[in-house]
Write a protein that binds this DNA or RNA. Sequence first.
DNA 1: CAGGGTTATCGAAGCGCTTCAACTGGAAGG
DNA 2: CCTTCCAGTTGAAGCGCTTCGATAACCCTG
Lengths: 337, 337
Amino acid sequence: MVTLAEVARHAGVSASTVSYVLSGKRSISAATRERVEQSIRELGYHPNAGARALASSKSNIIALMMPLRTDMYMPVMMEIALAVATTARAHDHDVLLLTGEEGPAAVRRVVGSGLADAMILMDVELDDARLPLLRESERPAVLIGIPADPGGLTCVDLDFTATGALCVEHLAELGHRDIAVVGEAAAVYERHTGFAERTRDGLRARAAELGVRLLHRPCEGSYAAMAGTLSRILDERPDTTAFIVQNEAVIDPLLSLLRQLGKAVPEDVSVVAICPDQVAVQASVRLTSVAIPAHEMGRRAVELVMAKARGEKDDLLDLLPPRLTVRASSGPAPVPR
Amino acid sequence: MVTLAEVARHAGVSASTVSYVLSGKRSISAATRERVEQSIRELGYHPNAGARALASSKSNIIALMMPLRTDMYMPVMMEIALAVATTARAHDHDVLLLTGEEGPAAVRRVVGSGLADAMILMDVELDDARLPLLRESERPAVLIGIPADPGGLTCVDLDFTATGALCVEHLAELGHRDIAVVGEAAAVYERHTGFAERTRDGLRARAAELGVRLLHRPCEGSYAAMAGTLSRILDERPDTTAFIVQNEAVIDPLLSLLRQLGKAVPEDVSVVAICPDQVAVQASVRLTSVAIPAHEMGRRAVELVMAKARGEKDDLLDLLPPRLTVRASSGPAPVPR
DNA sequence: CAGGGTTATCGAAGCGCTTCAACTGGAAGG
DNA sequence: CCTTCCAGTTGAAGCGCTTCGATAACCCTG
């Protein structure tokens, strides 16, 4: 491996000069810079990451902690992760992928060893065991999701409360008075992952305000589960004219089942989904939906954590406003027969 | 941060002794070991990753290069990534997440800087620009997928040729003589990602051997695309009695469309999918399928790359044999009217 | 009990980089 | 013309760890 010292010799300057050319932390004459850069290119020099980390006590690595579960919608997680990785590169950082498996120990390990300069946590639960450690660690950290007590921490998330409200509003405006919500799997609520509960709260609050009847049911991610949930919903509320779906896995099944029941979308029932745009446009009916801005969330998380590392940002709650796109699956409530 | 020197002082031994306790590379008396370990615990010591990497020229990091595309089935990628991460931890390594974005430059950077000890590449194309670099880098590397020339490289993958063959065999045994294959999006074939083409080859070869008529059509991942593809298939081959699907995204749409056409599964048409088991059991009909062993692939990739790092393994092609699980979507070919 | 082999420990020399204090030569200012 | 200043450069001191060779204490064997 080529070292900085060899580059220095090749360029006829001292090691520190090469270092300053690389970091730009001191002024270097154009001629010298050019010569050094030339040597770097010729020798194919790459700074040694370990040496750099040791000398500067900065690793230029961001740790990203992902959930290990499979009951969450993976594509969203994946898209966030990829957005984090590409945005991090734009800031000259790399991403270390941690799974939730190790739990709080992973935080301790990464922070203690100086492996990463900063952390981004996904799938944060309301009362997350990793948070106390994070608070006392003094490392920049950003959560994707919102815990019960976000004090002292920076969080990014879609404003799910507003998302719920927005869905209800849209349908209420179209005249729907009986709305059913197909939620995430029961386990997601039991685990107290905030987003599902916040969505439900937003839905309920708005529904109450607008005088809309709301039925909220969790649903596992399979066709069979959707079939069961649907028949129970229609049993309890035969006058349901609209569905709001928050479990991406059952969107197709729901549309398929409605078709089998002879219910046309949107003429007989309207459907609004909370899902990535891609899913919404690939369904059998182009779905009116509130997008989950996965890419944006990942990007923001990195921007925020970098800003914190530079000491620029205070702790804050970065709630992305939901945007509802009207497509072909929602329409005026049918006239009651 | 607590350093090794402080631990040494606290335990009343030299720094090197602490180091040897940690690494186990020299024998240490039980009494000393105990004392050192006690000090480590009391002080909450964590070895500094950078210093370690510098001194030992091993970072204990595996780089995982993922595709950035969204036309591949993300959950499989994600599951592989998670399996890689957890298996790596079991070998006391961490995972650095790279996206394909940087292309070959990422290989150069990571190898050159000593950031990672080893690499795992996903989504390898037949003629992948990263491979020459990898070969000359002398770092242990494992590909998930198989390039045109795997010489000098270790590869892990599902045996997609055998997978294709297996699907055809199963259906042929059931008496099907006209089989349609719904493949990946056209872009996947054009990019020459080997797996899609290998599957097709396996399908065709076996079909020819068994005297089965095969129609192979690529298909984008949307309901509308599936509808178009299906009608074209049935136009060209009205006698089609079985479908093999390799694009997870259109499994639900296909089943839904068949239902609409009044074709019962498996009485009128059989369906075999190539997809993760989870997808197969969550569909409206429990699908006969060949599983994509994502977790196993990720795990194997790490095991192999670790073995290479220890100098234990030669280059090889680790083809996982496909396993077909018969569920409710395949049955005897209907008697021609 | 001398000689050889183990076992347990230590000291010191780096690993390749960053960064600080110090130095130099020339431009600017009085 | 001498001081002051600053841009440009350097040498040297670490950063916290691993590892090699040396040492000392011990146990065996003949």
